[in-house]
Design a protein around this nucleic acid. Structure first.
Lengths: 227, 227
DNA sequence: ACGCTATTCTTACATCATAAGAATCGTCAA
DNA sequence: TTGACGATTCTTATGATGTAAGAATAGCGT
């Protein structure tokens, strides 16, 4: 066991070590347990010690998101742009799924790590060389990232709703929404992710400018923004 | 101005009124300002008073999200499933964009309000009568909602990244990621949203199992569409 | 008129982020 | 070796937070 340390006895702290401990703690005990004191305790140190490596708690939370994103695996080799995007999306999904407690963090403080930028650059390159306009390619990647984020965020179990009171026994009137609750039972988030991912990829393919095909049918061209 | 109230003098508080005040406060001063004391002050009341209408702060936050979602407009009339989904997405987008400070809340505590369920039911109906399998239809709606959420969440300005220190003048090495930063300047979130929305719709269309070519089919015909 | 209950306020406490400063160690110049 | 300095750590203290416990009041139904 670590003997108690005195006043100036180094503990060998690092920003990295702190972030990792914080992530580990949040993984195990949830975001609510993430206090400076608790993190410090986890490292065998007093709370104020952390402030020598991190300016404040907000910065620490930001750092945790960076830490997370650095766990994504960069796209392996060159392949079709679809495959690149699939890799990108799945890598993102895997990381977030591995740290469900951190999803609210990732959703509320998007970060751009060098790691992430490098991956983006690769994917952009892949898209460009497949006939996408640069601006379009960018929109594609960003949209994909947004979709992954929204997807994982949407799976935090929805709160029961039904304002506060439940005069009737049922938590919510299931019979009033037959389609919804029927489908709810059969659907699962994982297959939904792949389903929507493929839909997105298909749609992206169709919106390539360089694509020779004229309007296939239905849903004409992009742009009928109305309200 | 309100004369000070005594001990049992009613203030006419309501769960609704509290939630609305909370939303207003968060809109104006940000989530960080959302303390029980501050909300109470906004209502001319002491903090503990709130606990008679709301069990605790978490429940209050949940309620705020419900409050938000209740602002979405239900889909007007019958039209193509694409138009239904567009309406759904844009209505969702509009609400979240109108309350940017609440986006992290909405992203971390998804809620199912009766309002929202009713809208979903309508959209599900529309999809089914257009040849979608129920399970697919459900995946479509959920995916769309997830996408909208992710989209708005991803536009909270990304944190600068670059761990802590900036030895070089630049906050991040722009030249190392030419494609990304080139595209960054030209792209804007709004057009990206519509772009990706159309892509999704297109992809959904392609993934319909039973694809009756087109034409004025079921769903209770498309009547005169003006109101 | 009188008590009952819902509503409100008061007080109190543990916990939080963090400011200010004191103690200690390692290191390097002399 | 010595001595000073800077980096790291701990101590103490402050104001804010969520909320438990209970006291006071007002208006209601009887």
């Amino acid at each position: 066991m670590t003997a108690k340390r005195g006043r100036g006895q180094r503990a060998g702290l690092t920003r990295q070590a702190i972030l990792q401990a914080a992530v580990r703690l949040a993984d195990q005990e949830g975001l609510a347990a993430l206090s400076m004191r608790r993190i410090a305790a986890e490292l065998g140190v007093e709370a104020m010690t952390l402030y020598h490596h991190v300016p404040n708690k907000n910065a620490l939370l930001d750092g945790m998101v960076e830490q997370l994103l650095s766990e994504t695996v960069p796209p392996l080799g060159v392949s079709s742009w679809q495959e690149s995007l699939r890799e990108y999306a799945h890598s993102f999904l895997a990381v977030l799924s591995a740290h469900p407690n951190l999803i609210p963090l990732a959703a509320s403080r998007p970060a751009m790590t060098p790691q992430n930028l490098r991956t983006m650059e690769t994917v952009l390159e892949s898209l460009r060389s497949s006939g996408f306009e640069l601006t379009q390619a960018y929109d594609v990647v960003r949209s994909l990232a947004a979709f992954v984020l929204g997807h994982v965020a949407a799976h935090l179990d929805p709160i029961p709703a039904c304002p506060p009171d439940q005069p009737r026994g049922r938590s919510i009137d299931v019979d009033a929404y037959p389609l919804f609750f029927e489908a709810l039972k059969k659907s699962d988030p994982i297959s939904r992710f792949d389903f929507a991912l493929e839909a997105l990829l298909h749609g992206f393919d169709a919106s390539r400018t360089a694509s020779p095909s004229s309007g296939p049918q239905a849903a004409g061209e992009v742009g009928p923004d109305e309200r």
